[in-house]
């Protein structure tokens, strides 16, 4: 578990992070959102001590981060930034091996780990010997994620990781991140200015404004019960209903007592995908199947129910 305990950071007269307390359970994906200048990135950088707090502390797995040697602490925390920051003079493999090398792993272990990670982030092994400038933006970001995960960190910090890639690539990378997180169980804290990304990726969303934590809740709760007008304006608007569709899966709404004929949707599919399938097929109900092979049915009424 990650505990932020009354964290405060001041720059002169401005308070960038103002008395923020937040518990993030192990294995969660916490999306930090809020307007520009809300202190999201500052908060993230306080966690791996790229900047030191003026008050409060960070606890990672029960240990206080401020008391650990800073270099050792950072090697336990993965970090991915928008501009990726790959080392341009090192091959992909050497980039991924950065932290394992710093930790003094044996060569054979590092090589095995590089193969595993390329597979994990969905890159072909042939890319290992390439240099960053030879890769596309999406590939570079995947290498960035692989490098951050190399030494199996308990915590992964991501600062607008998909902000600089095109929408299609962003969507692919988001899917890849969800799959990676499902496989590794790493706790992730992610800064984003993209509401849809926060709703799609976050298990918890923390809304910051002027350095203060305004609300921390699940995406569904954030959309349904915003704590302030500012939060409501940030998440709401004409797309509120569409975002709500991203917070529940077909399996949660389906009726497994009966089924109908047709090509079934997966139970894990989000409701927005179900609506898309309905609109494409011109129907108002669809068959559902889940991982255990159970079959059910979901109707448009189930989808829009609150």
């Amino acid at each position: 578990m990650i505990r932020l305990d009354h964290l405060t950071k001041r720059y002169g007269a401005t308070v960038a992070v103002d008395d923020v307390s937040l518990d993030i359970p192990a294995g969660a994906i916490c999306a930090l959102v809020g307007p520009s200048g809300a202190g999201k990135s500052t908060l993230l950088r306080l966690i791996n001590r790229l900047i030191e707090p003026d008050g409060g502390c960070v606890q990672i797995g029960g240990a206080e981060a401020g008391t650990l040697p800073v270099v050792a602490l950072r090697r336990r925390i993965g970090y991915v930034i928008q501009s990726v920051g790959l080392f341009p003079h090192w091959s992909v493999a050497r980039n991924i091996a950065t932290v394992p090398r710093l930790l003094g792993w044996e060569t054979a272990r590092i090589e095995r780990r590089i193969d595993q990670l390329l597979d994990l982030v969905g890159l072909p092994p042939s890319l290992a010997t390439r240099y960053p400038h030879e890769l596309s933006g999406g590939q570079q970001q995947r290498v960035g994620v692989a490098r951050a995960l190399a030494a199996e960190p308990e915590l992964l910090l991501m600062d607008e990781p998909f902000g600089a890639v095109d929408p299609v690539t962003r969507r692919t990378l988001q899917d890849a991140l969800l799959e990676i997180q499902a496989r590794t169980g790493t706790t992730i804290i992610l800064v984003t200015h993209d509401v849809d990304e926060a709703v799609r990726l976050g298990t918890v969303i923390a809304f910051l404004s002027h350095g203060r934590l305004v609300q921390a809740a699940s995406p569904a709760e954030m959309l349904r019960a915003p704590a302030s007008a500012e939060v409501a304006a940030f998440f709401g608007g004409p797309r509120l209903g569409l975002r709500l569709l991203q917070t529940a899966s077909a399996g949660e709404r389906a009726d497994f007592a009966r089924t109908i004929a047709g090509e079934p949707v997966e139970a894990e599919a989000m409701l927005d995908e179900v609506v898309a399938r309905m609109a494409a097929a011109g129907v108002t109900s669809l068959p559902v199947k889940d991982g255990q092979g159970r079959r059910g049915v979901i109707s448009l009424d189930d989808v829009v129910a609150r």
Partner: peptide, 13 residues
Amino acid sequence: PPATLEAGRAMGM
């Protein structure tokens, strides 16, 4: 690049 330096620092160099 500043991002490269920050990445290096954040990796624990």
